[in-house]
């Protein structure tokens, strides 16, 4: 049983990892086709994984309703929102879900007039919270915090007309910050991240990193 529980998944990761890593260096049509097929397989598996996310969300809210925890009534709106979107999505403007997706249906209406405004409003609210958080934490307590504060202020002012009104050099300074010190730090971070990803990938392929197997036997 240990063979099926540990050896098989580790072998799958090893074979897939080696296959996909070497595939990149083989400029043959068969190699390109392999990448296409395996990528499609990955998409299909990820598609099923999305339903696990949906199950977790609905399970959590169903339990909230069942146990009548504080604020359980709001969970009903999760089911209402999901239910109405799924029903209109499956109805597909009268063509039903087995046909191609139709444009301009109620499903698209819900996306345009509920999901998009709600998402962009939530993200725009962050402007207020970031400003208030910055007010509380952006104090020039030491040298590093002062550098961060000055850099942020110059970049923010450099992107709006008032920056140019204060001084014509502010947009130039903002561009310089973005293209020199910011570029240098981001480049170093990317180099570090790349080395980290490559090292972790090698560890996964050779079975040194097994966190993806989860706990238990």
């Amino acid at each position: 049983m240990n063979f099926l529980k540990r050896t098989v998944p580790m072998s799958i990761a090893f074979v897939m990892g080696i296959l996909m890593a070497f595939q990149y260096y083989v400029p043959h049509e068969a190699s390109q086709n392999l990448l296409k097929v395996v990528t499609k397989w990955g998409m299909i598996i990820s598609g099923f994984a999305m339903f696990i996310g949906a199950y977790s969300l609905f399970h959590m809210h169903w339990n909230r309703i069942k146990q009548k925890v504080s604020g359980w009534g709001y969970s009903i709106f999760v089911f209402f929102g999901a239910g109405i979107t799924i029903i209109f999505g499956l109805y597909n403007g009268g063509e039903f879900f087995w046909d191609d997706k139709q444009a301009g249906t109620m499903f698209d209406w819900i996306f345009d007039y509920v999901q998009v405004p709600a998402a962009s409003t939530i993200f725009s609210i962050l402007a207020f919270f970031m400003a208030s958080a910055a007010y509380r934490t952006f104090r020039a307590r030491n040298k590093e915090a002062t550098i961060l504060l000055i850099s942020a202020i110059i970049v923010m002012l450099g992107r709006v007309p008032i920056g140019t009104m204060i001084s014509q050099y502010i947009p130039i300074a903002a561009d310089w910050i973005m293209s020199v010190p910011n570029l240098a730090a981001k480049r170093a971070i990317l180099i570090g991240v790349s080395i980290g990803v490559i090292a972790t990938s090698i560890k996964i392929i050779f079975g040194i990193e097994r966190a993806y197997l989860g706990g238990g036997d």
Partner: peptide, 9 residues
């Protein structure tokens, strides 16, 4: 909560 449901749907 409505937004969460719609996004999941």
């Amino acid at each position: 909560n409505l937004f969460v449901g719609v996004a999941m749907g």
